[in-house]
């Protein structure tokens, strides 16, 4: 892992630090609550928690501008919260209720928000990578100066369509940032056992795509790298790769045998590298916040998360008639002029 950067950055204010602390804590507490609701049988199916990886999305969102797009895999709750989607709607989707972002029809892995430019939530490993390049293709075509953050894991980095996409994204200079969230395990298979090279970010080089390794447990390092990548894309120089080394504390999904790594390895990460503790230390040692200030934030987050759980429990199941809606978008009248909403 890249060395942890110096404590203070000139471009980060005390307010920024507090915001990072708050945003990361929201994801962590939300995910813990989701795990709890799963244990109670209120959430079903697959549920992939983001605990440990919070600095990745929070750092990169701080480098995004209004209108920039994001798309990710099935470990998507953190991305949705970080881009400003409502925790109530996310949690209610996890419980499969009418108040969820997809009216209960998508589930943990399939949520979207046009308003926040969040394009999912995709369940097939690697398949969201060309989709992300396609979003960037649309932005370049429409000449709107937006960039797309396309997140995928170290496991997906071995999928063929990722390299088909690298080729076309570079060829057509698409404004897309490929964010490889390397949490070091593809389900239960470590990177060493699945991936022929150690540095995944170098895999863009044959396609002419620059890449760099980022400490994903340090939100400031992620922000700095994100800003550099965004600037590259907005200057019209084409795609950029960020391999963000991170660590997931929990299992791949809720039922995980936890036999492929030691408890000591997980504990060491939590003790020494925790991204939230890191920012907490910066706030306290830099005298940017008191213990009481942080306690107030903790309390506020706890209330938001508890409220989302209450909402998710109380929101009704979707009406049975919803089974038959949203299969097709409304037809455009035949022979009539087409009005574009894009």
């Amino acid at each position: 892992m890249a060395a942890r950067k110096a404590a203070e950055k000139p471009n980060v204010s005390a307010d920024d630090l507090k915001q990072f602390y708050r945003d990361m804590l929201l994801i962590r507490r939300f995910e813990e609550k989701a795990g709890q609701l799963y244990g109670m049988g209120l959430i079903g199916g697959f549920c992939h928690l983001y605990i440990g990886q919070e600095a990745v999305v929070v750092g990169l969102e701080s480098a995004a501008e209004e209108g920039d797009k994001r798309i990710t895999t099935y470990r998507d709750h953190g991305h949705m919260l970080a881009c400003g989607m409502n925790p109530d709607g996310v949690m209610a989707e996890l419980t499969g209720r009418e108040g969820g972002y997809s009216k209960g029809k998508g589930g943990s892995m399939h949520m979207f928000s046009r308003e926040k430019h969040f394009y999912g939530g995709h369940g097939i490993v690697g398949a969201n990578v060309p989709l992300g390049a396609g979003l960037a293709f649309a932005d370049k075509y429409l000449e709107n100066d937006r960039v797309t953050f396309t997140y995928f894991g170290d496991g997906a980095a071995n999928q063929g369509q990722v390299y088909e996409t690298f080729n076309m994204a570079s060829l057509w200079k698409l404004p897309v940032i490929f964010v490889i969230e390397n949490n070091q395990y593809a389900m239960g298979t470590s990177q060493k056992r699945s991936t022929s090279t150690e540095d995944i970010y170098t895999r863009g080089a044959p396609f002419g795509i620059p890449g760099e390794l980022v400490d994903g447990m340090d939100v400031l390092a992620v922000k700095e790298a994100g800003e550099k990548a965004v600037a590259h894309c907005r200057e019209g120089k084409g795609p950029y790769i960020l391999e963000v080394k991170t660590y997931r504390y929990r299992g791949h999904s809720m039922s995980d045998p936890a036999k492929y790594r030691t408890r000591e390895e997980v504990q060491k990460m939590r003790d020494e590298k925790d991204p939230i503790e890191h920012v907490r230390d910066l706030l306290i040692s830099g005298k940017h916040a008191s213990e009481d200030d942080l306690k107030a934030i903790d309390k506020e987050i706890k209330e938001i998360v508890n409220a989302s759980a209450e909402f998710a429990k109380e929101s009704p199941e979707p009406d049975p008639s919803e089974l038959w809606t949203d299969i097709y978008a409304d037809d455009i009248p035949q022979g009539a002029a087409v009005e574009e909403d894009a």
Binding site: P130, G134, F137
Partner: peptide, 22 residues
Amino acid sequence: DTPITEHGFAGIGVGAAFGGLR
């Protein structure tokens, strides 16, 4: 013109449709 990569360009097409194109 695309390279001979059906999986990739079909996905880019779908993403472009999500992004407002036809």
